[in-house]
């Protein structure tokens, strides 16, 4: 089972993801956790780091931005020690060329554009799971 942490300040994201991945959750393929801010996400990771395989984070958030969160994750959990670092996918707003480049520089594994294309996302998860 793949544990996914979704970070977004919009609370409705939870409902949306749960409904979109209804079948997968039911089948026990994936499990979602949700954090509504960067700080919350870091707090969650401190306790459940080894479990989390994938982090999906919005970039534009009040308080700690997605990019800051990304930097923390890459600093706090370097590449080498036994539990492999989580894959991080950033979700950028349409046309945010600058944050796109910044995210890649900070070590994001992939970038998704809002509105999220769930079919494509499922495809990516499938590939990640099989890898």
């Amino acid at each position: 089972m793949m544990k996914i942490l979704v970070v977004d300040d919009e609370k409705d994201v939870r409902v949306l993801f749960e409904q979109r991945f209804r079948r997968e959750i039911r089948n026990g393929e994936v499990a979602f956790s949700f954090a509504y801010s960067g700080e919350e996400a870091l707090a969650y990771l401190r306790e459940h780091f080894s479990e989390v395989v994938l982090i999906l984070s919005d970039i534009n958030m009040p308080g700690m931005s997605g990019l800051e969160l990304l930097r923390h994750i890459r600093q706090d959990y370097p590449v080498n020690p036994p539990p492999p670092p989580p894959t991080v996918m950033m979700i950028t707003a349409y046309g945010g060329q600058h944050s796109y480049e910044e995210a890649l520089r900070l070590g994001a594994d992939d970038l998704l554009t809002k509105p999220v294309d769930f079919a494509a996302l499922k495809e990516k998860l499938h590939l990640l799971n099989n890898a």
Binding site: E10, D12, L16, Q19, R20, A93, K114, P115, V116
Partner: peptide
């Protein structure tokens, strides 16, 4: 546009997922 985009995404996404449901 930025402000409208997020709610609009929800509208679109929820209507799509509702169809699936």
């Amino acid at each position: 546009a930025h402000e409208i985009q997020n709610p609009l995404n929800f509208v679109n996404n929820f209507s799509e997922v509702s169809v699936e449901l």
